[in-house]
Computed example of a mutant assay.
Amino acid sequence: MTQEDAMNPGPQNPADSTESARMKSMPPLPPAPPAQSGPPAQSGTGPVNPAALPFGMTPYPPTVQLPPSRRNYALFAGAGLVVGLGAGLLLAQIDLPSNSTALVDAVELCDLTDQSGIALGDEGQSLTMSGQGNETFGYGAKFADIQCVLAAIDMPDSVSSRLGNTRALDGTQTAQWGEFSTFWNYHPDDGMNVTVEVVGEK
């Protein structure tokens, strides 16, 4: 090969020329992101560190939590107000029973507040009267004291007669009048024992 041939090469392959032009037209690749030395990105719904993602990937946008509607709060508040007013009006129309003071008044009327054998219970809604007997050694209320209390609460004469004629063999007797219910028994050793309860009008 002469020097002229070396300086003027012959026609080249067209395919080689096209490939060379294509390689020259492509831009250079961007450098890879530097490696992160911090902790790996946490999984979940929190924000994702873009540097922790593989090259070329973009993170999903974070989920937006919309505030609850103020209209729902207004509806709930209005419904609660209506229910509260309705319940208040209903309770106002109901006549709630009040405790009777009849037994307390009867004990005070007969001056037996500190008398042994006279015991109020159930916030004044029951009264137990234990009389004197042969083996009570002076403890208890006298029969006249018991009769005073029963008369103060309007015990009917028929019931009072039954109570005064009760024997040990008769066992426990019961009676009811007005707002009171009572039961009693008698034994010579224990005396007369009477219990009265407020049960309301029948």
Rank of each mutant, 00 (worst) to 15 (best):
P11M: 12
L75V: 12
R70Q: 09
L90K: 08
T58D: 11
Q65C: 04
Q12W: 01
N13R: 15
P50Q: 08
P39G: 03
P30W: 06
V48P: 00
D111F: 07
P28A: 15
P31C: 06
L91H: 07
S69T: 09
G121V: 00
T113S: 13
Q42C: 00
P11K: 10
P68M: 06
S17G: 09
L85Y: 06
L91K: 12
L85I: 13
S116R: 05
A106E: 04
G84P: 00
N72F: 04
A21I: 08
P61Y: 01
R22Q: 11
L91Y: 15
L66K: 13
T63P: 15
D114W: 02
V82N: 00
L29N: 07
Q12L: 02
R71G: 05
Y73F: 12
N8G: 02
P14E: 03
R22M: 14
L53C: 05
V64Y: 15
D105T: 11
I94A: 11
T58F: 14
L29F: 12
D16R: 15
L91S: 10
N49V: 01
A106T: 03
N8R: 10
L112E: 12
G124L: 09
G44I: 01
A52K: 06
T18V: 10
R70V: 01
L120S: 05
T45L: 14
P39T: 08
S100W: 09
G86P: 00
Q12K: 14
A77C: 07
S25E: 02
A21W: 04
A92Y: 15
T63A: 14
P67W: 13
P47N: 07
N72S: 06
A102E: 11
A15L: 13
P28D: 14
D114E: 12
L75Y: 09
L103D: 03
Y73N: 07
P50K: 06
A15G: 13
R70D: 10
A21G: 05
F76I: 14
A41L: 00
D122P: 00
G80R: 01
Y73M: 10
S100K: 00
V82A: 12
V83S: 12
L96C: 02
S20H: 07
L89Q: 09
P30Y: 02
A87R: 04
A87E: 04
A41T: 06
L85K: 05
R22L: 15
T113K: 14
D95L: 02
V107D: 03
R71F: 13
G124P: 07
D16K: 15
N8S: 13
P30N: 08
L66H: 13
T113D: 06
P54Q: 10
P47L: 05
F55P: 06
D105K: 08
G44W: 04
P9G: 13
L29G: 08
S43N: 08
L89P: 00
P11I: 11
G10L: 13
S100T: 11
G88N: 10
T45C: 11
Q115T: 14
N99C: 03
T58L: 09
P40K: 01
G78L: 11
V104Q: 10
L112Y: 05
R22Y: 11
D114C: 01
S100G: 08
L89F: 11
S116Q: 12
P67L: 13
L103R: 00
G84H: 00
A52F: 02
S100Y: 01
T45S: 15
